[in-house]
């Protein structure tokens, strides 16, 4: 795949798009707090990836970190000030929770909306570099090395930003998810939920044709 991308094979970019456009879109949303901006960022990310194709290292694994890194930069250019992010996040969180009570709205979906609003509120408390690391590592599940590669910073910097961000977020998340930390600790023997299968990670590797639904 890396060879084909470097060679400028259009088919390789079509496959990349099918596999990762959703992940890039979601990552961009976490960084912009706006779905339509996220769509723009996603589209520019792949165009930018095409432009930067010969900078791809011929050796290496998945190109997902690379694309997420480009998306991070693109989002940064779209959304320079943190104040603007906070405003957008506030608006989006309000929009998500202000949806009228549909009787047929599934409880799980409502949950998702609340979770999204909480996530935005939480992300808005962070500084931009911290938010980027959180979005990459917790949102998209990259490990430290991949996040460092995506952001072009040392692994140690990723780790320190992440731990700082976590400290800030802890209070917010516990409050917003209505979890009592003490109670949670008491249940530690219960098998942990299969977190790997949550979120978009399974769907990040979709076969090419599925993109055309």
């Amino acid at each position: 795949m890396r060879t084909r991308v470097r060679a400028g094979d259009p088919g390789a970019f079509a496959e990349l798009f099918d596999a990762y456009s959703r992940a890039v879109y979601n990552h961009a949303f976490r960084l912009t707090a706006d779905w339509s901006t996220a769509e723009d960022v996603m589209a520019s990310t792949f165009m930018e990836a095409w432009r930067l194709r010969d900078r791809v290292d011929p050796e290496g694994g998945s190109l997902r970190p690379w694309l997420l890194g480009i998306a991070t930069n693109t989002a940064r250019n779209q959304f320079r000030s943190n104040r603007r992010y906070r405003r957008a996040a506030g608006a989006a969180a309000a929009a998500e929770t202000a949806v009228p009570d549909h009787a047929d709205e599934v409880a799980g979906r409502l949950d998702d909306r609340q979770r999204l609003a909480a996530a935005l509120t939480a992300l808005a408390t962070l500084r931009r570099p911290e938010r980027e690391v959180i979005a990459l590592c917790l949102g998209e599940g990259l490990d430290y090395e991949a996040a460092a590669e995506a952001l072009g910073i040392p692994v140690g910097t990723v780790a320190s930003r992440l731990s700082r961000a976590r400290r800030k977020l802890r209070a917010v998340t516990e409050k917003d998810l209505g979890k009592d930390p003490g109670k949670d600790r008491g249940k530690r023997e219960v098998p942990r939920p299969a977190r790997q299968t949550r979120g978009d990670h399974t769907q990040a590797i979709r076969p090419a044709q599925e993109g055309n639904r």
Partner: peptide, 28 residues
């Protein structure tokens, strides 16, 4: 911590609006 945060963030994952995947792919 990690679990809570990941749960929180997984709530932000969505599909592109209907038809947009194809639209953007064709444009790309």
């Amino acid at each position: 911590d990690v679990r809570l945060l990941s749960q929180l963030l997984s709530g932000t994952a969505r599909d592109l609006p209907s038809g947009r995947h194809r639209f953007h792919k064709e444009r790309l």
